[in-house]
Amino acid sequence: MSAEQAPRHYRTLFLSDIHLGTRGCQAELLLDFLRYNDAETIYLVGDIVDGWRLRRMWHWPQLHNDVVQKLLRKGRKGARIVYTPGNHDEFLRDFLGTHFGGIEVVDETIHETADGRRYLVIHGDRFDVVVRHAKWLAYLGDWAYVSALNLNTGLNMVRRRLGLTYWSLSAWAKLKVKNAVNFIGKFEETLAQEAERQGVDGVICGHIHHAADHTDYGTHYINTGDWVESCTAVAEHHDGTFEVIHWAKRGEWARLPKPSTARAAA
């Protein structure tokens, strides 16, 4: 293991939009990330399990089970794990205030950094007007999104066998479409305003699969990204500073063992 690959320990890790139960989930990359990164507290910021897709078609390969077991193992070793459900795992909102496997389930929470700043931690779907007021359209959009991810999966199988790093076709296309860019901007502004309304220093959210860390709207806005397109997480260092980790861009993915035929077909 090189010095660059040595395990790192953070004060806090934030992960969202893993979408376990879908073919687009980059579970192998996430497992690689979890092997080399630990934290005192881990926030699961929604859409960890994709209940929408699982209701339509069951897809749960061993790698997805491995992700769950890896997170539970971190909890058993002393990490505090807090789960704020999103729209795809909204069934967990029936269990707010409970614990399962050592994981706390809350609708939203306030995280205090090492330097005393306070951040609203929330998935963010209730600030998405499509999800709130036109759920049928959200389901249609989900179908189109999954279709793009299936294409993306095939493309990256070829890239991986060529020794190239992961690249997201869907993320690239999304940022090229003006309406999508406008939606992202409006979402960020709305969440920043909610943080200001609650009197905190910033917000940490997920939902739109677009990692970010900025103060463009007057309040610190952080988005964790996802593990189907960008393969990103947010880390709080022990001094209270934040970092968006782009795991796929670091090249670890290209060095993972090539999948067996059985695993590739899972």
Rank of each mutant, 00 (worst) to 15 (best):
A3M: 08
A6L: 09
Y10S: 12
R11V: 10
R11I: 09
F14M: 12
F14K: 11
F14Q: 11
G21W: 03
R23E: 02
G24E: 00
A27Q: 11
L31D: 05
F33W: 03
A39N: 05
A39S: 10
T41V: 15
L44N: 14
L44S: 14
V45Q: 10
G46W: 14
I48C: 09
V49A: 10
G51E: 12
W52I: 08
R53Q: 03
L54G: 00
R55I: 01
R56H: 06
Q62K: 15
L63Q: 15
V68F: 08
K70Q: 14
L72A: 10
L72R: 15
K74C: 07
K77R: 07
I81A: 07
H88R: 09
L92T: 11
L92M: 15
G97Q: 11
G101K: 06
V105N: 11
D107N: 14
I110C: 09
E112F: 02
A114C: 01
Y119C: 04
Y119D: 01
D125Y: 14
D128P: 01
D128A: 01
V129Q: 07
V130Q: 02
R132E: 15
K135A: 02
A138F: 05
L140D: 05
D142N: 11
A148W: 09
A148H: 04
L149C: 05
L151Y: 08
L151A: 02
N156E: 00
M157S: 11
M157C: 07
V158C: 05
R159I: 03
R161D: 09
G163N: 07
L164F: 01
W167Y: 03
L169M: 04
S170R: 01
L175P: 00
V177Y: 03
K178L: 09
N182A: 09
I184L: 07
E189Q: 12
E189Y: 08
A192P: 03
E196C: 02
R197V: 01
Q198E: 10
V200R: 03
I204S: 10
I208F: 13
A211Q: 14
H214A: 04
G218A: 03
G218D: 04
T219G: 03
G225K: 12
G225W: 09
D226L: 13
E229H: 02
C231G: 08
T232I: 11
A233K: 05
H238R: 14
H238Q: 11
T241C: 02
V244T: 15
H246G: 07
A248V: 06
K249A: 13
K249C: 02
R250P: 11
E252L: 06
W253Q: 04
A254H: 04
R255N: 15
L256H: 14
L256A: 15
P259L: 12
P259K: 04
S260R: 15
S260F: 10
A264L: 15
A265N: 13
A265T: 12
